[in-house]
Design a protein around this nucleic acid. Structure first.
Lengths: 205, 205
DNA sequence: TTTAAAATTTAGGCGTGCCTAAATTTAAAA
DNA sequence: TTTTAAATTTAGGCACGCCTAAATTTTAAA
């Protein structure tokens, strides 16, 4: 059985490798905030298990198996980060939570979540990255309209409702996947469809 | 710091308590598939930490603190089960995965997911519980139509497309939150809107 | 090339949570 | 009430993964 610690090491080593940083005992230990002596132990063990080649005093090189595994975990990490963002988890917590979750998400769940968050493209290329579709906000959350995606017509119709950039919106009632959103704008409550809502991009507060 | 094992014990004990089963060393050990001797050790520890009262040879009683903690973990477990179901994870895996995840979902993430899955009511009261809206299936998944929600009109229009109960559907392309679904029915590919799709209830395969 | 500093490894320990085998206590049958 | 079976605890161990301190090796400066 592959332990959480093994995964953590492989992910870290893969990260360094990807960044072109030398995969030495010290670098790995530093990255993991662990004593170098602890890293030595683990690296020997990983070598024995065929994840990497270990040359004493010289650092390590991932084998194909090691790369594959490290990459997989890194991918889980990234998918979870995206997912947490979609759910409106504060940025400050996202990395740490993803670090934890990456070890407990089985492959098929990662795939399922990946498909979900991919479908949810915060879209317009070049858009500020802290902007999300209105549909991503949770009940009670507030956001400020950043822009409206998808053509003149949409913008015009929304403007008629008072939904223009810089307007503050509070989500009263949303739901996952379907059904209209109930929102509050300048003291007025509005119901808007999901299709339209997904084209309103807001900066969450 | 509360360890995963401590959580597991508290959840289990709370479960037994909820079910009215005696919280004896043996019952707890059996439930956790652990040797009774191991349970004794842990129960002593939990008593020292104030989660329960331990009387040798007589079993344990949860304190208020123990109940609170056990309940919280059980709730996380249940929310995760629901969430996994929503994502189309096969039933056979749901319980086990939820068991794992419950220990790694921070409170706020559990709350966020809870709101999402609550919005996604597999609806019609009395409906078989393994039935989900078509929108819950992932790309490539197959399902068999169980029934159509929402009135004659909808049923009729869908029937015209060949979408009637017992028909098998394959989802070709779906996405989170928005956009139409591309599905395959009897060899034909169809595009249907999310609104309609959310009213087609299927049993996932 | 020698030598001191830096990097790395070895040795010895700690806490957690599990296990088995052997005692001990409790419960129930004779 | 005695005796035996079942439940429970005690004792002794194991694997993990971390740590510090002391040894060793490498590197780079003099």
């Amino acid at each position: 059985m592959i332990t959480e610690s093994v995964e953590e090491y492989l992910e870290t080593i893969y990260r360094l490798y990807e960044r072109g940083v030398a995969t030495t005992t010290t670098n790995i230990a530093k990255e993991l905030k662990v004593a170098p002596a602890s890293a030595t132990q683990m690296l020997k063990k990983l070598a024995k298990q065929g994840y990497l080649k270990y040359t004493p005093y010289r650092g390590v090189t991932l084998t194909a198996k090691g790369k594959r595994t490290g990459k997989e975990i890194l991918r889980k990490h990234r998918v979870m980060e995206k997912f947490l963002g979609t759910l409106g988890i504060p940025k400050s917590k996202i990395h740490k939570e993803a670090c934890e979750l990456e070890h407990h998400i089985p492959h098929d769940l990662e795939r399922a979540i990946y498909q979900k968050v991919e479908g949810e493209k915060p879209l317009p290329p070049g858009a500020p990255s802290d902007v999300v579709p209105l549909t991503s906000l949770l009940d009670g959350q507030k956001g400020v309209i950043s822009f409206i995606g998808g053509g003149r017509g949409a913008s015009q119709r929304l403007a008629d409702l008072g939904l223009t950039p810089r307007t503050e919106i509070t989500v009263i009632k949303s739901a996952l996947f379907r059904g209209p959103l109930l929102i509050s704008v300048r003291g007025t409550t509005l119901a808007i469809g999901r299709g339209v809502a997904s084209r309103i991009f807001v900066r969450a507060k």
